[in-house]
Design a protein around this nucleic acid. Sequence first.
DNA 1: CAACTCATGTGAATGGTTTTTACATGGATA
DNA 2: TATCCATGTAAAAACCATTCACATGAGTTG
Lengths: 215, 215
Amino acid sequence: MSWSGPGDSGSGRRGYHHGNLREALIDAALELIAAKGPAGFTVAEAARLAGVSPAAPYRHFRDAEALLVEVAVRGYDLFAERLANAWNGGRPQPVRAFEDLGRAYLAFARDQPAYYAAMFDSHLAMESHPGLQAAGDRAFAVLREAADQVAATLPKGRRPPSLMMALHIWSMAHGIAALFVREGPGRRKLPMAAEELLEAGVLLYLQSLGLAGGE
Amino acid sequence: MSWSGPGDSGSGRRGYHHGNLREALIDAALELIAAKGPAGFTVAEAARLAGVSPAAPYRHFRDAEALLVEVAVRGYDLFAERLANAWNGGRPQPVRAFEDLGRAYLAFARDQPAYYAAMFDSHLAMESHPGLQAAGDRAFAVLREAADQVAATLPKGRRPPSLMMALHIWSMAHGIAALFVREGPGRRKLPMAAEELLEAGVLLYLQSLGLAGGE
DNA sequence: CAACTCATGTGAATGGTTTTTACATGGATA
DNA sequence: TATCCATGTAAAAACCATTCACATGAGTTG
């Protein structure tokens, strides 16, 4: 899918021109990151996977970092989409949908390690890449919006600041993903599934705000 | 400081032998990571900083990763020490000391970015480095112990599992450090200090367990 | 249809990196 | 003092990023 040129997706290229090198390089980068970690990606090997010379990628990306940025942007977009689907406008109930959001967060980290690594492990400077900043903001906006609706179930007097809520939940979800879901330095065995840990944490947190359904 | 050989810390070496290359390489690695991020460290440049040939480091470390591991181990040890100091045996009061622990977590991420990067951003596999695993466990044990004592202030019936508490707090602290304290992809402006965000989160969490001192 | 242009790809070169190898040095020890 | 071996060097092979001059051919234009 997504090929416009003269067919043939993976194996041998058609003629002198590739036809869709940009996309092929992004796919190759994802494949390499998934297989060998965020440091396992090199422009040269991505070019090799796409069947072109090591210089060809530079017609499409200024440098290796630019390719990574493009991967991360797409990752944030997919992430935002998954989160929005899980939240589903807060239905059937805001608190329940909020938990679904948390599960979707961890599911993304688990199912899309390549995207997740490009987004959070590549040490790209948001400031120098406005598109990346914007994509990240779009993803966070989903969480923010959800927190807002959850907070709105309380009467105005006891309503917590939804930004703070969103930041707390995001932090806990991100921390659990970094420490217990993904490969890496902090990873250690848990006596429970990461999803259960997050769900319990979210429930307790919401309880302290007078929000939780469970007791 | 920390030189045993014939003096002269940074500039030009004495004779053919360095005298303390192992330590000098670790210092150089920290300096490079601090200056140019976790990816900015190379064996060759560390050797250059120490004033030796690019091959010399391999007399002391099997490869680049082994050097990183040594840095990370020292980082975990320093981390554990800082956390233990902040906890201070739970004095004057467990809940209050627990908050100090959280502050110390973020302070470490802020003050020791090089160690923190080696520990959490280098994607070292804990499994393949038992010493690293052990060092990480020692640091986590401080948090675990603290959670245990905090939980013990409650009567047995309403006492939460301290492991879960420790994991929740660790995750939130780590998430806040990763997203808002350190340079990196997720970093964005906060309407409050990261320390305040964590303190509020911890307080709310403890409240839900019936623990908090605030109201 | 022929000529041209320009985006896209190539080859080769520069300069960096990791890591291994054979060899050199000299501090510690017998 | 003679020797040994931990520690250093130089050189080399194998990678990588990036750039530059040049090649190709798809799409446009006359």
